[in-house]
Design a binder for these strands. Sequence first.
DNA 1: TTGTGGTTGTGCTCACAATCACAAGCAAAC
DNA 2: GTTTGCTTGTGATTGTGAGCACAACCACAA
Lengths: 204, 204
Amino acid sequence: MKYHKIPDETIKRMPMYLRAFSILKTQNQETISSQQLAERLHLNPPQIRKDLSYFGAFGTRGIGYPVSSTAEQIRSILKLDVSQQAVLVGAGRLGTAIASYPGFSMFGFDIAAIFDNDNNKIGKTIGKNLVENVAEIVTLKARNIRLAILAVPANAAQGCADALIDAGIKGILNLSPCYLNVPKRVKVITIDIAMELGILPYYI
Amino acid sequence: MKYHKIPDETIKRMPMYLRAFSILKTQNQETISSQQLAERLHLNPPQIRKDLSYFGAFGTRGIGYPVSSTAEQIRSILKLDVSQQAVLVGAGRLGTAIASYPGFSMFGFDIAAIFDNDNNKIGKTIGKNLVENVAEIVTLKARNIRLAILAVPANAAQGCADALIDAGIKGILNLSPCYLNVPKRVKVITIDIAMELGILPYYI
DNA sequence: TTGTGGTTGTGCTCACAATCACAAGCAAAC
DNA sequence: GTTTGCTTGTGATTGTGAGCACAACCACAA
């Protein structure tokens, strides 16, 4: 399995595996077979084995995968072994909901700063962060933060993205319903809730 | 192109086309070529043509696609030509953010009811809806609502899903980080924000 | 030391989606 | 009426990922 390009679809499944292994660890289970794991995640056992084997041989034949060390391996592959700092732009309802989302901590994410353009919000505290003026985004350069979560209206998204990229941001989770024009080196993932909901009626 | 199964990936792109055509309509543009549309959406022209042609011939050779009527066609394909009523379960921060999300109206969605299990929230008003007790989900049967948005903690998600399905819900947009066990006839779409964010560090 | 049950790792095959290339066809100009 | 330019619709090709079957292998027991 050496010298193989790793499929994007495999990468997409890795956080799912990480979460499963993390939960198993808290339950003090020491090993798990691809069969058992597949039942939990509703996948096929060979797919799980193939996914994991792209990164090397983690398991033991006849036994399964060691929970604790495999979790650490995946964490390291996804670069989640060090705490990842992220900034949030947009302190509206969606932004504040995101900021207080408990699920991030499992992956080691930490909201390190929050920005907004509304004077009524600037200066207020959300969680442990003070809401700063979007004009201050430029100060991120010095702080070496590489991830941003964008929760602003669609018409403001591109402008914020430009400022973030200029300030050294390398990855953006975009929650606005729009395409962001960014340089190739910047990775954008867009989640468009309305669009996802839009396909449901077709299937029912 | 008759008698072809329509790819899931095509369906996923249809709401994107619908939004684009809707915006073009407000800008009073009468026709658009696959080339122009591809530039807007950052897709390839042949892909757009093939996607649309699965549902019949909408365009005019030499001219392009008529904005207004194509929008209506797509709306009808996705069953968004009639207002789709949906219920929201979970009136926490994420739930309230979703309830007031402006993007739903473009697709004709309407939040028709909101449920929560927290006595502090039950009875309060969010937007035009009164927050009801989750125990009342059973009353949905009489209201003929088929869509639900699930914004509750992971450990409560399966229980709520069971109640919703029992009350006649056919499609669920699940925002909890967990797999939902549902009958085959029910369509579930899960959005896991933390998991999406989890793949970003790998790419940067 | 050898045998056995069980599980991983992976080459191969199949299915599906993206892309290409071109024929078909419409509109407008002359 | 005919020609020209442009754009669609689609069969054929290529690329990518999922699934399967089996060889390789480990741990443990006898």
